[in-house]
């Protein structure tokens, strides 16, 4: 296996992705990721040095809106699914940095 992912990397990616895997999940995910990356390394067989990365398949461009207010009070719909709300706002654990 060419790609070896350290526990540290798994922890780091977990912080980025906001996922906390159990030890068992972590080991499984690590193994899967290593084999996926080995497989993805196959792309290195291709010489892409002269190829521009393609994010959009079609050359669509300049899709704009005019600056006109069309939406009214979205409050009720916005909060309809909130797990916790108060005073027309979403409630989250305190965010002030310590």
């Amino acid at each position: 296996m060419a790609n070896v992912i350290s526990d540290e990397t798994m922890g780091y990616v977990g912080i980025l992705a906001k996922l906390e895997l159990s030890e068992e999940e972590k080991q499984a995910a690590k193994k899967d990721m290593e084999s996926m990356l080995d497989y993805i390394d196959k792309l290195n067989e291709l010489d892409t040095s002269k190829v521009e990365p393609m994010s959009h398949v079609f050359p669509v461009k300049n899709v704009f809106r005019e600056d006109v207010v069309e939406n009214g009070d979205g409050g009720e719909a916005t909060l309809a699914n909130a797990p916790e709300k108060r005073d027309r706002a979403f409630v989250v654990p305190k965010t002030v940095d310590q």
Binding site: I40, L43, L46, E52, M54, V57
Partner: peptide, 13 residues
């Protein structure tokens, strides 16, 4: 990884 994949996508296209 990501840019390489986008380049490969261009080749496939």
């Amino acid at each position: 990884y990501y840019l390489k994949a986008l380049r490969t996508k261009a080749l496939i296209k």
